[in-house]
């Protein structure tokens, strides 16, 4: 027994078991179900159904659109916020940063429910606008934090050197600060785009299911016992997320190091 514990590589055993049962096995199952029909025979029927189903394709396009819009909005709102937070001139206390990060402490589902209540109280019609609001509200901290992280660690002598060489403050930002902070932006894109493309709870609560997202139809299929088609849709989403991750992997590498 003591030999078992003293060998360092054995310590990874519980984690390996966890990975096998809760990550690898479910993935294999999803893949298996996706390539089977209801009777358990090998079949590409599910994929055929998806690519010939205009409703599913439309939902898929809408999901991508909403995810891209959310990500863009998060960059537009989050970058300036991160920049202000990282600037010693405008922000002298760590409290403001915590205030920005604090929404992450509250469960996203609760925040979404509260937001929905708020909209109903104010008689705001639920639709795409409220959906985007909820998405941005939920995922903005994930954009701000990596950008803030990169900006606050950036050696300010780069900006000074650019200024010294004749760059006006606007040019310094465009030519030096922005390009040097791109790893943070890529990291933020990854962290916002991935969950938004697969979410279903937010659209359920904030549009009263008027707006169906890709996550919603996966949930519908699984709930209604359509395991094979649900697995096909899940697999397609995984591929999309995998591609985004690969695209931004090397670009965002340095920003993720400091993430909480």
């Amino acid at each position: 027994m003591s030999r078992l514990i003293s060998k360092r590589s054995n310590w990874s055993l519980p984690y390996a078991i966890f990975l096998i049962f809760f990550v690898a096995l479910p993935l294999v199952l999803v893949a298996m179900y996706a390539f089977q029909d209801a009777d358990g025979r090998f079949s590409l029927e599910g994929f055929g159904k998806f690519f010939h189903d205009p409703d599913a394709l439309k939902t898929f396009a809408v999901s991508l659109e909403v995810a891209i819009e959310t990500t863009l909005l998060c960059i537009l709102i989050g970058y300036p916020a991160a920049w202000i937070l990282a600037s010693k001139k405008y922000n002298r206390s760590a409290v403001t940063i915590i205030l920005f990060i604090m929404p992450m402490w509250v469960n996203a589902l609760m925040r979404t429910l509260a937001t929905a209540q708020l909209f109903m109280m104010l008689d705001v019609p639920l639709g795409k606008g409220t959906l985007l609001f909820g998405m941005v509200y939920d995922f903005l901290p994930f954009m701000i934090y990596p950008i803030y992280n990169v900006l606050s660690k950036m050696d300010k002598s780069y900006a000074e050197a650019a200024q010294d060489l004749g760059a006006s403050p606007a040019t310094v930002f465009r030519k030096v600060t922005l390009p040097l902070s791109m790893p943070g932006v890529w990291s933020g894109i990854l962290m916002v785009f991935m969950p938004t493309v697969s979410t279903f709870a937010i659209s359920e609560f904030l549009t009263n299911n008027k707006f169906k997202l890709f996550g919603t139809i996966i949930q519908d299929n699984i709930n209604n016992g359509m395991w094979n088609y649900g697995a096909v849709l899940s697999l397609i989403m995984l591929v999309i997320i995998g591609i985004t991750t690969l695209l931004s992997k090397d670009k965002g590498a340095s920003a993720e190091e400091g993430l909480i």
Binding site: A161, D164, S168, L180
Partner: peptide, 20 residues
């Protein structure tokens, strides 16, 4: 006169060469 309008240039202690 802001730094970018002064007719002088600086060699910084840690060089501050643009890594990108």
């Amino acid at each position: 006169l802001p730094p970018h309008k002064r007719e002088l240039n600086t060699v910084f202690q840690r060089y501050a060469l643009f890594p990108h």
